[in-house]
Amino acid sequence: MSDAREQGLPADVARDVPDEAERAGLDTVWRAMESARPAPAVSAVESSVMWAAIVAGTSTPASESVPSRALASPAAIARTDRRPAWARRRVRGAVFTAVALAVVATLLGRPGAWREVQVARGQQQTVQLPDGSAVTLNAGARLRYRNDFRGWFGRPADRVAELEGAAYFAVAKDGRSFSVRTYNAEVRVLGTEFEVQAWPAERSGTVVAVAEGRVAFAGSGTRDITLAAGDRAVLAHAASAPGAAAAVAVDRVAPWRRGGFVAVDEPLTSVVASLERQFDVTIEIGDPAIADRRITLYYPEVALDRVLGDLATMQSLTVERRRDRYLLRLP
């Protein structure tokens, strides 16, 4: 960032202050502010750790070669970085420290770092976890997990993954429990297949549907419920315990994995958000009055135009195709 360190008042500001004495005063205080420049917010080690996490999150699929890739890059920095030599030395120092820490961590058997996978709109991705479990992430979803599910000194630790969005988990049995945490709930299992869905930004609450085996589903309160295959339950956004289980056909659990689409009693806004993610399009709801309408839909195979057409028919709406978006509104 070539910055205003040595320069005075920005031209835009100066232009706006016609009075010369006042301009000089503002310029003085502008320069005096240099003394209040904040200290670096991130230590060299924190910086290396952050970069390693970013590498993990930007290499698809998440591969086991992440650490070597994170550490192999200083040459690339030197090639592209135009900062002064001392700054590059600091980076090299940081990388050296990170290597040293990694060696020490391995010797001590420190728990693995968190790994993060984020799926772009319009895409899906299956991640193999280190315990043999597989997670299929729907468009826009984000998953974090410890990269080896190991605790201190290599002892097996509980398997924990954090999820934002929709994902289908096929959990391998290995004697340990496996937990999926969302922004407002926790789902604990031994070995089973189930879908979890939670979009914090949409206040969707957490939805769990089980295809095989049993899971325990809990919120922040003390009450949890057990769901068996063919059960589906919702922990509402502001609730502390999940509501009662309802039946769901097993083939309607995460149908998006096979190009399908399902919504069960969801507000139109959530359905639209899912479609936007799945098809990477923009859909505008033209009338606030219709945003909260409850929608239930199921398609084993889905085409965007068909869903929008059906929504319009069912809800007496019109759908228009604009240049860069669809518009849903009252006729």
């Binding site: 952050m50 930007t58 890059s73 920095i77």
Partner: peptide
């Protein structure tokens, strides 16, 4: 590598 440069 450009992402890395921006990051740093």
């Amino acid at each position: 590598a450009a992402l890395e440069a921006v990051f740093h």
